[in-house]
Amino acid sequence: MSSEHARQPVTMREVADAAGVSVATVSHVVNNKEGARIGEDARQRVRDAIHELGYRPNALAKTLSSGTSNFIGLVADAIATTPFAGQIIHGAQDEAWKHGYVLLVANTEGDPAAEDAAITMMLEHQVRGILYSTWFHRAVTVPEALRETDYVLVDCYEAGSTAPAVVPDEVQGGRTATELLIQAGHRTIAFINTTSPSPAQEGRLVGYRSALEAAAIAYDPDLVLNAPSDQEGGYAALDHVLTLDATAVFCHNDRMAMGLYDRAHERGLTIPGDLAVVGFDNQEVIAAHLRPPLTTVALPHYELGAAGIRRLLGDPNPSGKPILIPCPPVIRASIA
């Protein structure tokens, strides 16, 4: 997708750079888009640049009278190459298809240049809009090029802005995980949170505390640990958990629960008889295959993708805040 190869066709981005305008402006000029407020001076610079560079507008796009194609773009940092967030693509694709759109997917590994090239190319294809997604829930800065079309942030958000976004409901997820343990009769529930600051770290703790409060269980800060969010973190945390007389533990994610299982087995403890465990993420390759299979809370990746498309295609969201997608519990066999 790089423009360094001489044989590659001239892109709309190159025209925009040469003319000193945005890609959207080039697009509007090329397509004679009605209602575009573009000064005659800019319009002329674009025409000159097109002539000089030999830019040939995309034939497919040019034939479209509507001004947009039946494509929706999805730019992802790493969701195609991480094990469990690929369902974002699946959900977006199914939902786009239902509305008569085809998804164009670009996985950029978070490289800004690749991201910019992908967005530009999508604009050239006159996509109906673009979903910009990340493989874990985090804050992002919206790339400038994205503002030239309709877009929705998926599994990410821009801090302090009204940029349209759909994200998992971490608070509800944390509450749900804790409620599963409370419903099973547990009162002393440890929470092994992550050491990495993130919406998940904050939100799941808020959810944990609100579930305790609703059940009239006093919050004990000693029951909340922080550990690296991987197997080693969970493994190392178990010994400490056992000193707290907890009968149940909520792990920030399934990988930590996996490590916790290992240490529990080493110490001859039975799950869920000696210790009830709930995870988070529903990372299928882990949760479904631990013994016993891990009860967890799912990150709703499929639904995030689908909801992103619905938001893009006009689902209203008057609040201006990110749309929260519920994280459903996935019942297996690690709670008794």
């Binding site: 419903q183 519920p326 459903p328 519990p329 996935v330 019942i331 297996r332």
Partner: peptide, 11 residues
């Protein structure tokens, strides 16, 4: 669940 809200998934 004392107050079921959906969805709950069973593997």
């Amino acid at each position: 669940a004392d107050h079921l809200e959906g969805p709950v998934i069973f593997d």
